[in-house]
């Protein structure tokens, strides 16, 4: 049975592994260069990187590829493995050749799952490549573009570490499940694509923030910490009603999930008094007036409440999310084994 599964699988496996090898080669050549650049330049690292078209392109393309891998594996490996056989009737051929369905499905899941895991290792290789950038972010350096987005942020979290591996395996099982339920290749592939993308959206948008309770911090609002100052025009000309203030915290690479201003009674401020508009000043044009405004904010009891996940939690969160995804994959696989025992002609 392993022979048959491998025989059906090998062409696409070679294509996939070939592409993976090319990717690893590119990362292997450019990775040490990136590490050297970080060692040598330190604070000007991001300035240099921004001018390095090739490595910037690898960074963006690599992120995109690692995000796309699960869908590719689920759609092209997971969905057709089962659906094509049910569609063509070849499953009946095999099931009447002295192979139980359980063994049939187990072999398919095993072989394709191993393939998916190998492909998912590509995520780890990319994480290795990005290490200098992550180090620079951890040191507090930054770049106005996408390059210095901390790896803990939901935008990138799923493209680093072991989560891509778990997501790839999960996508494969989603594909197999869809194939088993839909029983037609093309339809199963479409369902798989939608389901995988949905899972890839739900995890960063909904799940990631709930994996661990965030750390909390309450701090005074000062001029140099200010990161956000949002308002809308008031009723009078030149008047501005301030609605939101955000501050930074001394935790490079942290993921801030909540950044709210509290008043002296401890409730969240919806609209600030009109004098707060005085605090707004373009960078470099702060004067005594803005300083007085910040002093008044502190004196009247306004303070900033920040909820965040520090960068040090990266691997903890990675492992929890990986466990969740693999657990989900196991549940789906269990469902497949239950379903395969029932009538399928």
């Amino acid at each position: 049975m392993i022979w048959l599964t491998w025989r059906q699988f090998r062409v696409s496996a070679f294509i996939m592994l070939g592409a993976l090898a090319v990717g690893l080669l590119v990362l292997g050549v450019t990775g040490p260069q990136l590490a050297d650049s970080w060692q040598v330049s330190q604070q000007s690292f991001f300035d240099q990187l921004a001018t390095d078209r090739v490595k910037t392109a690898i960074f963006h393309a690599g992120t995109a590829v690692v995000y796309a891998l699960p869908a590719v594996v689920g759609v092209f490996w997971g969905a057709p493995t089962v659906a094509r056989e049910l569609e063509a009737g070849t499953s009946r051929l095999v099931w009447t050749q002295g192979v139980t369905r359980i063994r049939w499905l187990a072999t398919k899941l095993g072989v394709a799952g191993a393939g998916a895991a190998i492909v998912g290792l590509g995520g780890l290789a990319f994480t290795w490549w990005c290490a200098p950038i992550d180090d620079a972010v951890a040191e507090g350096y930054s770049d106005p573009g996408m390059l210095s987005v901390p790896r803990l942020w939901p935008e990138l979290f799923g493209s680093r570490g072991v989560v891509p591996l778990a997501m790839t395996v999960l996508a494969l099982v989603i594909g197999v499940t869809a194939g088993l339920l839909v029983r037609r290749s093309i339809a199963a592939m479409a369902v798989t694509l939608v389901a995988v993308v949905a899972v890839q959206l739900v995890f960063p948008l909904v799940v990631q923030a709930r994996l661990l309770p965030p750390k909390e911090l309450t701090t005074t609002i000062t001029e140099d910490r200010l990161t956000e100052f949002t308002g809308r025009p008031g009723s009078a000309p030149d008047e501005m009603v301030v609605e939101r203030i955000g501050v930074s915290i001394d935790s490079p690479g942290a993921w801030i999930t909540s950044n709210q201003t509290l008043d002296d009674s401890g409730t969240v401020v919806a609209t600030f008094p009109s004098w707060v508009a005085e605090c707004a000043a373009p960078p470099g044009q702060q004067d005594a007036e803005t300083a007085a405004c910040f002093d008044r904010l502190a004196a009247e009891g306004y303070r900033q409440h920040v909820e965040y996940h520090p960068a040090s939690r990266f691997w903890t969160l990675q492992l929890i999310e990986t466990g969740l995804m693999l657990g989900l994959a196991l549940v789906l696989a269990g469902f497949c084994f239950w379903r395969i025992r029932r009538d399928l002609t």
């Binding site: 049975m1 022979w3 048959l4 025989r7 059906q8 063509a88 009737g89 070849t90 009946r92 051929l93 095999v94 050749q97 002295g98 192979v99």
Partner: peptide, 21 residues
Amino acid sequence: DTPTYAALSVADHLRLGAHLN
């Protein structure tokens, strides 16, 4: 409809039978 694996050769089918039976 005598299903067979369209992508596999005749010899592959015999090997399949040998492996599975």
